[in-house]
């Protein structure tokens, strides 16, 4: 198992490198730059733009810098390390080298701040929201799915289908707004403005809103696989052996039905904790979702790179955990991955 983890962590290096390269390529291909203003605003003057580009290293070549290397060569430098560094004195490699040291670069919008400062300051809010949403989705989704499958076509089955349909087809901004109008204005159970997001209580309503669609997917997937497993021969064997119904469900059905659920849970958790922009916006939660989305439209280059790399790292980790859990759920799969 240790070998498996090490192998997968080594794999993460090329994955992250390519994610960085692809994102870097994409964002520089997209028209416009980080200092562009809205259409009705005065744009930054040419001299100022040149100065800003110098300040943030955007005047360097994008991928390789042969000019700098040959200049060094001409000046008599023969140390291959120094020459190589000069050759790679480009926007991309400078970013990669800095990122390896933990420096994700300056944000172009929040002038003076570094991307890692912003992310680590604002992320806890998104993390709390996402974790609560996930807990809600799991503790309601899995039991609902299991019951719906065991009592197929019962009222529980239809209720779960009802929530699943709502959760997936009514957009989050509608549900969020309805929650605010109903619980905020009509019942006055929650406050709209008077929330301290450093405490847990205000997260209750938004996490339900956010978790709803994940919950419905988990419910449906659980129901489907439990139905599948329920019909397998070994379940009948287990029943025939006289195992109690609860044992059959927990030991055999759940265990075997959990593989698709776990597969979904991994990336879903990453999506939930990396900032749900709509939920955060409706409930005014100061999380990272908005930064990550706005960064793309504002061409805040280092914020795009930083958020993408962090997201990719989490996806890689989540998938390692998912693949590990396959082995735990079904010992025969252990060799895989």
């Amino acid at each position: 198992m240790l070998q498996f983890i090490i192998r997968r962590l080594l794999w993460a290096i090329p994955v992250l490198f390519f994610v960085a390269l692809v994102s870097f390529f994409l964002m520089h291909q997209a028209p416009g730059g980080p200092f562009d203003k809205d259409n009705n605003k005065k744009q930054v003057d040419g001299a100022t733009l040149a100065s800003l580009n110098r300040r943030f290293g955007l005047d360097k070549p994008q991928y390789i810098n042969p000019a700098a290397a040959s200049r060094l060569w001409a000046s008599g430098e023969r140390n291959p390390l120094t020459l190589g560094r000069a050759y790679l004195d480009s926007q991309f490699f400078n970013y990669v080298f800095n990122a390896m040291r933990g420096d994700l670069g300056p944000s172009y919008r929040q002038r003076g701040k570094n991307v890692q400062d912003i992310i680590f300051k604002q992320w806890p809010y998104s993390m709390r929201l996402g974790l609560l949403a996930m807990i809600f989705a799991v503790i309601t989704g899995i039991p609902l799915g299991v019951i719906a499958a065991l009592r197929q076509n019962s009222i529980v089955d239809y209720i779960s289908l009802f929530f699943a349909t709502i959760g997936v087809s009514v957009p989050t901004f509608v549900i969020g707004l309805l929650v605010i109008i109903f619980f905020g204005t009509t019942l006055k159970w929650i406050s709209i403005t008077n929330n301290d997001w450093n405490t847990w209580r205000p997260y209750l309503a938004p996490s339900l809103v956010l978790g709803l669609s994940t919950m419905s997917f988990i419910t449906r997937i659980t129901r489907s696989t439990v139905l599948e497993v329920k019909r397998q021969d070994y379940i009948r064997t287990a029943r025939a052996k006289g195992l109690s119904e609860r044992m059959v469900i927990v030991r055999h059905i759940l265990r075997n039905a959990m593989i698709p659920v776990v597969t979904v849970l991994g990336p879903a958790l990453v999506d939930l904790i990396t900032g749900a922009v709509i939920t955060e916006s409706i409930f005014s939660i100061p999380g990272v979702g908005k930064f990550f989305v706005d960064a793309i439209f504002q061409r805040d280059y280092s914020m795009i790179m930083g958020s993408t790399l962090i997201y990719a790292t989490l996806v890689v980790m989540a998938n390692i955990l998912v693949d590990l859990s396959y082995g735990l759920l079904d010992p025969r799969i252990r060799s895989q991955g």
């Binding site: 901004f173 707004l177 605010i180 109008i181 905020g184 204005t185 006055k188 406050s191 709209i192 403005t193 008077n194 916006s281 409706i282 409930f283 005014s284 908005k290």
Partner: peptide
């Protein structure tokens, strides 16, 4: 200054007398 991103939500806050 109370920052409320969504205007529809801000309207609710106004109706509630929060701003």
């Amino acid at each position: 200054y109370q920052y409320i991103e969504d205007l529809a939500v801000a309207l609710q806050a106004y109706k509630n007398g929060e701003v």
